[in-house]
Design a protein around this nucleic acid. Structure first.
Length: 405
RNA sequence: GGGGGGAUGCCCGAGUGGUUAAAGGGGGCAGACUGUAAAUCUGUUAGCAAUGCUUACACAGGUUCAAAUCCUGUUCCCCCCA
């Protein structure tokens, strides 16, 4: 592959490369000198389940690896004790050392589903940030002005709205920037929410006489709700370790408008094909549902297999298109003492099956007509159900359970 | 160091002694409609075998027949002056 071809492949899906010319030069220089570029990614070890949003960034890193470069993942164990204020309006809770270790391990395992483990180095920024003396910190911090830090939108907004900003939060971007200095990174990849931090790395590297890293910004993937960014806490995510069936189902629930974006950022479908899909969707030549199934299959195949993707689709069609019951579902084992005269209160049944978190919730669900047993609607919250082995309870659209005696 | 303002349910936010499990909005959930879409409409959104009971308006006490609402102390936050 020529440098231009590499560059264009890398450019796919990116929102911005700062600056583009520098990336091309670095790629060329690396090739000429036979020296891999250091591609840096900082991970905040708070949420140990990687979802498609983060996968967008990781997949970009993987591309660099395929071109022979080295990925360095920084587990921000030190910075996690600060809590990155990026896009957050509140200060994050602090993690214990133990939690960070466990999360980092989980992160690494999951990253390897996307990255090439042989070209991936994992480091903890506590290794160097934790070693700094206060005098060192002062020296680093003195290179950055308050005005420069306050340029950051998040800080500016909070300041203007009278919400609190702690001193240690102001130090966060500088810590991240110092990571780049310490590692002498060539490229830092991140979501657009990382823009300030990554550009700060460029600033600081200059102060240390280093070549500035290139900032490569990926869009923030919108979550399943179609509004907010994909995140675990908003429960609008697809985890890369989720079973094929769940992945498929979740992906089918995205809105039509998001499909092209998902194709671009989450699959390897060539861009000209994505473009033609976009066009044909707009012209009404393609049925959105068929394309969405294709999208779901493509993504499931990346994290599982083509066969698993096909099975997931078959299951989806069985349950939702033909309204049949799923092939397998959780089972609820009932013992003799749970049952009186062969009967069990519907509310108890739902809560025991873990389908509702409380009896009150179960009561509501029944009253709203969301519960069926073997296809028969139960709408009386005081109903006693004659339980039989193999009965299927359905609560809401998605939850099924089979009774076992 | 001085002065002022604030903390309400998942989130935002109204409420300044008694029909307040707490208006309104957002989000979630369910139902209708569908393509499990999206949009829209309707209902619902503390717990409890339940025409009632228990818990709940930062935390701990107090006043009162009655407190989110009044008083005292504590914690946290914001603004202004220095």
């Amino acid at each position: 592959m020529t440098i231009d071809e590499q560059f264009n492949a890398i450019k796919r899906g990116t929102l911005e490369i700062v600056p583009e010319a520098a990336l091309k030069e670095k790629l060329k220089k690396a090739q000429d000198e036979g020296r891999p570029l250091k591609i840096k990614l900082g991970l905040d070890p708070t949420a140990p389940h990687i979802h498609l949003g983060l996968a967008v960034v990781l997949r970009k890193m993987r591309q660099f690896q395929d071109f022979g470069h080295e990925v360095i993942i920084i587990i921000g164990d030190f910075t996690a004790s600060i809590g990155d204020p990026s896009g957050k309006s509140i200060t994050r809770p602090q993690l214990t050392e133990e939690e960070i270790k466990i999360n980092a391990k989980t992160y690494y395992d999951q990253c390897c589903m996307i990255l090439d483990p042989d070209k991936t180095k994992v480091v903890f920024n506590g290794q160097w940030l934790g070693e700094l003396m206060f005098a060192d910190v002062i020296r680093i911090v003195s290179k950055i002005t308050v005005a420069r830090i306050l340029e950051r939108d998040d800080f500016a907004t909070r300041l203007a709205e009278g919400r609190p900003i702690s001193m240690h939060e102001l130090l966060y971007p500088i810590c991240q920037a110092y990571d780049s200095v310490f590692l002498e990174s060539d490229v830092e990849v991140g979501g657009t929410d990382q823009k300030f931090n990554i550009l700060m790395g460029r600033d600081l590297q200059t102060h240390y006489g280093q070549a500035e890293q290139v900032g490569l910004f990926m869009p923030i993937l919108t979550g399943l709700d179609g509004v907010q960014k994909m995140s675990k806490s908003l429960n609008n995510y697809v985890g890369i370790t989720e079973p094929p069936k769940d992945m498929f189902g979740k992906l089918m629930s995205i809105s039509d408008e998001m499909m092209p974006t998902y194709f671009e950022l989450c699959t390897d479908v060539p861009m000209d094909e994505v473009e033609s899909i976009r066009k044909e969707l707009a012209d009404g030549k393609l049925h959105p549902m068929d394309i969405k199934k294709r999208l779901a299959r493509e993504i499931v195949a990346i994290y599982h297999s083509v066969e698993a993707a096909n099975e997931a689709q078959a299951e989806f069609e069985r349950v939702f298109s033909h309204h049949e019951i799923p092939e397998d579902m959780p089972e609820l084992k009932l013992s003799a003492e749970d049952i009186q005269d062969g009967k069990l209160w519907i509310i108890k049944l739902l809560t025991m099956a873990g389908m509702t978190p409380s009896n009150s919730e179960a009561r509501r669900l029944v009253q709203q007509g969301g519960v069926t047993i073997d296809g028969e609607k139960i709408s009386d919250p005081s109903a006693n159900i004659e339980v039989k082995d193999g009965q299927v309870i359905k609560a809401g659209k998605l939850k099924f359970a089979r009774i076992r005696l």
